[in-house]
Design a protein around this nucleic acid. Structure first.
Length: 293
DNA sequence: TAGACGTGGCT
DNA sequence: TAGCCAAGTCT
């Protein structure tokens, strides 16, 4: 084991032991499927909003086969207001792929996970680590921020993930796979609860005395502007409004029902077209629209 | 590779 | 208040 991981591993593992949140997908009886579902739902989405949806989802579709047997539109409806509803569609596609190609069992290899729709490098590593106790660098926004502060002395990581960050994260991984898995979730939790983006709780940090950013006086981020996504008036908002009409309706809806959801007609038609192209909405031959059946 | 892709809570 | 931010992926 290298000195770097020796230095950081124990304090963070101990901190996690004492401070980890009691989340249902971390329970001893959580299944790989439940963990996979949680990871998809948690993409760009706060835990508090995922909790009730995850509970309902797992009660209704406790296995990949159960979801695979449902229409994709039911997945979209059950997704509710979590946002990025294409995730629901891809999760449904993944359930069918798992049922068809993996005998109904969530695959354990990073490669097989990565081949599923909606699962990228992060989610594949997270599921392999959290569900199967494998040794992977699990590099999400929390971990990237912790490493940027602790080791690089920067308030925030670079805008897009670099090869160097991945190499660094791999270097820190304990050699023993189950310990590496524990470490992965622990660093992520530290980023979520203590080493937060806006107002970090440095006084609660188990590695404060080892933090480069702290030692440098916590200099403010000096890189290029990080983001600035306006939302009001965008196609994304328009799509959201239209899909909400479909979600809240019992069955198919008429075109006028969709029209009242957004006043700008050209934008509305464009959004409706993309929703159809994405497979989120199906047009009926009687002129009405429905979630996929 | 930058931009598209939802939603709502917090500061 | 308005912008920032939340366990990313896909094209």
């Amino acid at each position: 084991m290298n000195t770097t991981s020796f230095t950081y591993t124990a304090p963070i593992l101990d901190w996690y032991e004492a401070n980890a949140r009691d989340l249902p997908w971390r329970a001893p009886d959580a299944t790989p499927w439940g963990i996979l579902v949680s990871e998809i739902m948690l993409q760009q989405t706060p835990v508090a909003r995922v909790l009730p949806v995850w509970d309902a989802w797992m009660a209704r579709w406790p296995t990949p086969a159960a979801l695979a047997a449902a229409p994709s539109g039911e997945a979209v409806r059950a997704w509710g207001r979590l946002g990025y509803p294409r995730r629901a569609l891809r999760l449904h596609e993944s359930a069918r792929a798992i049922t068809d190609r993996h005998g109904g069992e969530v695959p354990s290899s990073h490669e097989d996970l990565l081949a599923l729709p909606g699962i990228g490098a992060y989610t594949a590593a997270a599921v392999a680590s959290f569900a199967f106790r494998q040794r992977h660098a699990v590099l999400d926004t929390n971990v990237r921020r912790v490493l940027a502060r602790l080791l690089s002395g920067d308030e925030y990581p670079p805008k897009s993930q670099t090869r160097a960050e991945l190499k660094l994260a791999e270097t820190l991984l304990p050699l023993d796979p189950p310990t590496a898995a524990r470490w992965a979730v622990a660093v992520m939790e530290l980023g979520a609860l203590v080493c937060t983006a806006r107002t970090p709780r440095c006084t609660d940090c188990p590695v404060l005395d080892k933090c480069t950013w702290q030692r440098n006086g916590r200099p403010a981020y000096s890189g290029p502007p990080r983001r600035g996504q306006t939302y009001a008036g965008t196609d994304r908002q328009c799509r959201g409004r239209i899909l909400a009409v479909l979600r809240e309706a019992e069955g198919p809806v008429t075109k006028p029902a969709i029209d009242i959801a957004w006043s700008d007609a050209p934008q509305r038609e464009r959004a409706l077209d993309t929703l159809i192209a994405d497979g989120l909405i199906d047009p009926l031959n009687d002129g009405r629209y429905t979630l996929p059946t």
